[in-house]
Simulated assay, not measured.
Amino acid sequence: MTTAHRLKTLTGYEPHRAGRSIAAGSPAPLPAGRSLAAVRDVSPALDGPQVAILLTAILETYDGHRTTAQVEPLVDRPLLERLRAHSRARSAARHRLRSVRLCAPADDVVEACARVETGRRTIALAARFERTGGRWRCVRFDLLDPLATAQRMAA
């Protein structure tokens, strides 16, 4: 006689499998009819899927697959300049967002860490979003790639 086993989710710690939150799975693509501006302006608080949409857009700009004009309202000026400089180089590697974890250290701040795949490698991403004047902007965006850093220092 076999016994059926069922795992119960830990309330407050694990997302329910049917709903499958962004923290547990891959980010969802931008739904039809939704724009980046809608995510940036409407939300009083950013949630996992919204942050995933914003980070994906910034990663696409970083890779040179999206123009910096498309993310200009989403990022602060220093980050925009960094994206412009890097997107001109247009690397062959494509970065793909795989999972996102969030924390909110203050009411108008959301910090995210994410797992990003590039080729066969997995690297980390750290980002910070701040709300000023009712708009969310990414003020920090760092890909934590120890191999690329070591290669730059060796050159």
Rank of each mutant, 00 (worst) to 15 (best):
residue 11 T to I: 14
residue 17 R to P: 02
residue 13 Y to S: 12
residue 42 V to G: 15
residue 27 P to N: 05
residue 52 A to H: 01
residue 32 A to S: 11
residue 11 T to E: 12
residue 18 A to D: 12
residue 39 V to C: 06
residue 13 Y to W: 12
residue 18 A to Q: 13
residue 44 P to Q: 13
residue 25 G to F: 03
residue 29 P to L: 05
residue 32 A to V: 13
residue 11 T to F: 13
residue 47 D to L: 13
residue 12 G to T: 09
residue 35 S to K: 01
residue 24 A to F: 06
residue 42 V to I: 05
residue 51 V to D: 07
residue 50 Q to N: 08
residue 20 R to A: 13
residue 39 V to N: 00
residue 23 A to K: 04
residue 49 P to T: 06
residue 39 V to R: 01
residue 35 S to V: 01
residue 42 V to K: 11
residue 27 P to D: 06
residue 47 D to R: 13
residue 17 R to N: 05
residue 49 P to C: 04
residue 39 V to W: 00
residue 24 A to K: 04
residue 25 G to A: 15
residue 15 P to S: 09
residue 20 R to P: 00
residue 43 S to T: 03
residue 22 I to G: 04
residue 13 Y to T: 11
residue 18 A to S: 12
residue 34 R to K: 05
residue 19 G to H: 10
residue 33 G to P: 01
residue 50 Q to H: 06
residue 41 D to W: 00
residue 14 E to M: 12
residue 31 P to F: 04
residue 16 H to W: 11
residue 21 S to H: 08
residue 42 V to P: 00
residue 25 G to K: 02
residue 40 R to Q: 15
residue 35 S to I: 00
residue 15 P to T: 11
residue 33 G to I: 03
residue 48 G to N: 07
residue 19 G to P: 00
residue 12 G to K: 12
residue 49 P to M: 05
residue 14 E to V: 14
residue 36 L to S: 02
residue 44 P to E: 15
residue 28 A to S: 13
residue 46 L to T: 09
residue 17 R to S: 10
residue 48 G to E: 06
residue 20 R to W: 04
residue 38 A to V: 01
residue 28 A to G: 08
residue 31 P to R: 08
residue 37 A to G: 10
residue 40 R to D: 04
residue 48 G to S: 08
residue 31 P to D: 06
residue 24 A to Y: 04
residue 19 G to L: 15
residue 42 V to N: 15
residue 50 Q to F: 04
residue 50 Q to L: 06
residue 36 L to E: 01
residue 14 E to L: 14
residue 25 G to L: 05
residue 11 T to R: 15
residue 44 P to W: 03
residue 51 V to M: 05
residue 30 L to V: 05
residue 41 D to A: 13
residue 47 D to V: 15
residue 22 I to A: 12
residue 48 G to P: 04
residue 25 G to D: 14
residue 51 V to T: 09
residue 11 T to H: 13
residue 24 A to I: 04
residue 51 V to I: 07
residue 47 D to W: 05
residue 21 S to A: 14
residue 51 V to Y: 03
residue 20 R to H: 08
residue 44 P to T: 12
residue 19 G to Q: 10
residue 28 A to W: 02
residue 17 R to K: 12
residue 30 L to R: 10
residue 20 R to F: 03
residue 31 P to I: 03
residue 18 A to R: 14
residue 42 V to S: 15
residue 42 V to D: 15
residue 51 V to F: 02
residue 13 Y to K: 13
residue 15 P to V: 10
residue 16 H to F: 09
residue 36 L to T: 01
residue 39 V to D: 09
residue 48 G to I: 09
residue 18 A to W: 11
residue 12 G to C: 08
residue 18 A to E: 11
residue 34 R to D: 03
residue 45 A to R: 15
